[in-house]
């Protein structure tokens, strides 16, 4: 607890919200995640104009427009490359990427792995509800194999669910955590830690879809805090994941992997010097 007086100049969570009203269903976990984003930004007192939130397509990917920061609502599955291109060329900005489980782990699955590998200093928040909401309730990569209410998979997906934390750890992410929309303050804390940790930070937030997965309202009763603090040792993190029931909440891994920070120092005076390689010395 800092003993600093509340200054009138300090930005409050509501200062990070835009005037645009969400299209999400009342009861959706994403409202809580939106609140967590604003609380995290206020906690860090980020300049709104120096923050960029980038998303793909899906319910949760609507989040940039609801924030009073710069945003990019890109195409389905490709938010991470947009974020990487931006952060590499504008290291002065705080870059956050947000989206859902279908966007991030299915159509964007390869970008997820490669972004973990590249370890650019940015934060990726996936609001995981194990379903495609905007197309009316199809199974997603994180859906249980026996969920039979997806109209494209009436007998269940019968395929193994994607395990984002394992993939993130194996691929090289430098910060890995799980939060729950049932606790927006806790999610805000994890997002704050994620932004402040160097390199690529991945945060899975369990965020129920009350329209297509009403049973997920029970997640509130199922989630439980992880009994241990974050480790910097990938091997320890991997062992913990073996006993993960998908509902442990907390920060799993805070690594020391070196972020990708290319240099940007001009070495020639102008583009004209590049000509010399082509010039014929007659």
């Amino acid at each position: 607890m800092d003993q600093t007086s509340t200054s009138t100049a300090a930005l409050k969570p509501k200062d990070y919200k835009s005037d645009t009203k969400p299209v999400w269903c009342p009861g959706c976990g994403d409202f809580s995640v939106l609140s967590a984003f604003t609380k995290a930004m206020a906690a860090m007192q980020l300049d709104p104009e120096r923050v960029v939130v980038i998303s793909g397509i899906g319910c949760s990917s609507r989040i940039p427009a609801y924030l009073n920061v710069y945003g990019f609502h890109a195409v389905h599955g490709r938010a991470l490359p947009v974020g990487i291109g931006l952060k590499i060329t504008r290291p002065d900005l705080t870059v956050m990427v947000a989206g859902g489980d279908g966007d991030g782990f299915s159509i964007g699955g390869n970008h997820f792995m490669q972004a973990c590998r590249r370890n650019v200093d940015m934060t990726y928040v996936v609001m995981d509800n194990q379903v495609y909401g905007m197309t009316k309730g199809q199974a997603s990569p994180t859906t249980e194999p026996d969920w039979e209410r997806g109209k494209l998979t009436p007998h269940g997906t019968r395929i193994n669910p994607f395990y984002p934390l394992v993939i993130a750890l194996a691929s090289g992410a430098n910060f890995i955590a799980r939060a729950s929309s049932n606790d927006p303050n806790g999610a805000a804390r994890v997002i704050t830690e994620a932004v402040q940790h160097p390199g690529f930070s991945f945060v899975q937030i369990l965020s129920p879809c009350i329209t297509f997965r009403p049973e997920q309202r029970d997640w509130k009763k199922i989630v439980h805090p992880a009994p241990v603090v974050a480790t910097a040792d990938p091997a320890v993190a991997a062992r913990r994941l073996m006993t993960d029931d998908n509902f442990f909440i907390g920060t799993l891994f805070k690594g020391e992997r070196v972020p990708f920070t290319p240099e940007f120092e001009p070495r020639a005076e102008s583009a004209h010097e590049l000509e010399t390689a082509f010039r014929m010395s007659a």
Binding site: M1, D2, Q3, T4, S5, T6, A10, P13, P26, G27, C28, G29, F31, S32, S35, K39, A43, S181, N182, P184, N185, G186, A188, R189, T192, P208, I210, R217, K220
Partner: peptide
């Protein structure tokens, strides 16, 4: 001079934050 408390530092015991309706409760 009020202490600046990050939201997650607020401690309400095992209870949800007082006076706050759960985000998942509306329809």
């Amino acid at each position: 001079s009020l202490p600046a408390i990050d939201p997650w530092e607020l401690d309400f015991g095992d209870e949800d934050p007082p006076e706050a309706v759960d985000y998942s409760a509306t329809h």
